[in-house]
Every structure is written in C-alpha cells, then in structure tokens.
C-alpha cells in the first residue's frame, strides 16, 4: 500500500527519492579517500536513520484485534482511506489490555488505541475523526468537512450511532454472540427488550433513508461507517430480519456492506 506524503506533518521528515537511491549505491564505494568515505558513511548513516524514522513514522500502529468491533471501526476508516497501517495484536484473551504497557495507550483498558508518530489516541470514534480530518484529501471526505452545514449533519448522525444505536445492538450482540462463547445461554428477556429499542431506532433510520441514500445525505460518511462493525456480527444472527424487513435500511446495509473496505475488514471478523 502506498503512503501519501503530501501532508504538512510529513514534509519535515521526507528526503527526496534521488538522495535515497544515491545512498543505496554507496555500498560498494570502497577505496575512496578517507575524508570522502567518512563523509559518505556519515551521510549513509544519517539517511538510514532518517529512513528508519520515516518508516516508523509512516505506518500507523493500531493496537487491538481484528475481531473487536471498535478495532474494526478504525480499520474500516484506514481501509477507506487506503492508509498504510500495522495491526499490533493485543492479547485480549490473557487480559493484556488491562495491564501495562497497554494501559499507557488507553487508561480505560479497552481496544483499540493508535500510535501515529507523535499522536497517540484511544476511543474509536475519536480516532476516526482524527484520521478523517488529517487525511481529508485522500479518497472520500468522510466528514464532509468543507461545508459546515454538511459536517454538522454528519456529526449529528455519528452521535445517533453512538447514543441511540450502539446501546441496544451492543446488548443484543453480547447476548447472542459473546455469552455463548463463555458457555452461557443468551438472556431472552434482555434480547427482547433491546430488540424493541433497536427496532424503534431503525424505524427512524427507515424514514431517514427513504429521503437520502446515506444517513447524513447523499454521501457515504463516518456516520454510516461507524455502524458497520456491530452490524457485521448482528447480520449473522436470526435477528437480522429487523434490518432486512425495512426496505430502505436493507438497501443501505447492502450498499455499505459491499464496499471494498468493508469486505476487507469483515474478513477479519470471523469468530469460528
């Protein structure tokens, strides 16, 4: 994956391609004058150091696991933007996220956290905002940040995801998918009451999506993207019918789940 070097952030650490290649050729440069050789070696060392730091600086490190919905939320954003990243596995099964050194990345002990050069962040939705802003010009503008009236609508539906949608779908997925992993039976009472809440939310979405292709308007944005991780798992349960029974919500899900980035990230979300 190629990395876009256009950002002001990078311009201070980038060396021109020509200089890099010249440095590479110096390997066989024996028999030169001592002074010259030192200079060349010094230059080489300097460049190797620079290259190393560029390499380290370039790939965004995502600390998490591909199965985690909140990790997947960040990966979706990175894939949409075509950004280079390294997924650093956090051994959640053995509780590594509740211990140091992970707690220094996220004091709440939750995945994911990112490390992007001098920027360390946690909270998937905040990370996505940061990535979308920083890389506004690559690929699609996921925040519609050029027009305040559009970005405010994106923000509104991002909050709807976080405050209306996330609660019930999290509870249902927990009962349907997580509990069985621990040998527990799903609590049907919880599932029923949370499904009722989710259906009410989806009724509002149905109305909204009958007027626009995506939640924040005619463009795919973070407001849609942030919904994907929980839906990936939810749509594998028998309760998926609450989505497919609503024609506009169903079309929306078909659109957002068949995006290249979604397919790539969902491939890492297989529990069996």
């Amino acid at each position: 994956m190629s990395v876009n070097l256009k950002f002001s952030y990078w311009k201070y650490v980038i060396i021109p391609r020509g200089r890099r290649e010249e440095g590479g050729e110096e390997k066989g440069g024996r028999g030169r004058m001592r002074k010259g050789r030192n200079r060349v070696e010094e230059k080489k060392k300097e460049e190797e150091g620079e290259l190393k730091s560029i390499k380290l600086a370039m790939a965004i490190k995502v600390h998490g696991i591909s199965l985690s919905t909140c990790t997947a939320r960040v990966l979706l954003c990175l894939h949409e933007k075509g950004l280079d990243y390294e997924l650093v596995h956090v051994d959640v099964a053995s509780g590594a996220h509740k211990k140091q050194p992970y707690l220094s990345l996220n004091p709440f002990g939750l995945v994911p956290a990112i490390d992007d050069g001098n920027v360390r962040l946690f909270e998937s939705r905040a990370i996505n905002r940061y990535l979308a802003r920083k890389h506004e010009d690559i690929g699609i503008d996921l925040l519609r940040s050029k027009t305040l009236t559009e970005s405010a609508i994106v923000e509104t539906w991002m909050e709807v995801e976080a405050h209306q949608f996330n609660g019930p779908i999290y509870a249902i997925n927990h009962q349907m998918i997580i509990s069985p992993l621990y040998g527990l039976d799903p609590d049907e009472k919880i599932i029923k009451s949370e499904l009722e809440k989710l259906e009410k939310v989806l009724d509002v979405y149905e109305e909204r999506l009958s007027k626009s292709a995506y939640l924040a308007g005619e463009n795919y944005t973070l407001a849609d993207l942030n919904h994907i991780p929980f839906l990936v798992y939810f749509m594998r349960t028998p309760h998926a019918s609450v989505v497919t029974a609503r024609p506009h919500v169903s079309v929306w899900w078909n659109n957002i789940s068949t995006r290249k980035a979604t397919i790539e990230v969902a491939a890492g979300m297989k529990l069996h």
Partner: peptide, 18 residues
Amino acid sequence: SPLAKASIDQWLEAEAQS
C-alpha cells in the same frame, strides 16, 4: 490546532462512552 482537537475528541468520547 488539529492535535488539540484530537485530544478533545478523545476525552469527549470517553465522556460519551464511559
């Protein structure tokens, strides 16, 4: 600045989620 904003967003989300 973008960095200040990122930090504010992070703690706003901590407020909203935690």
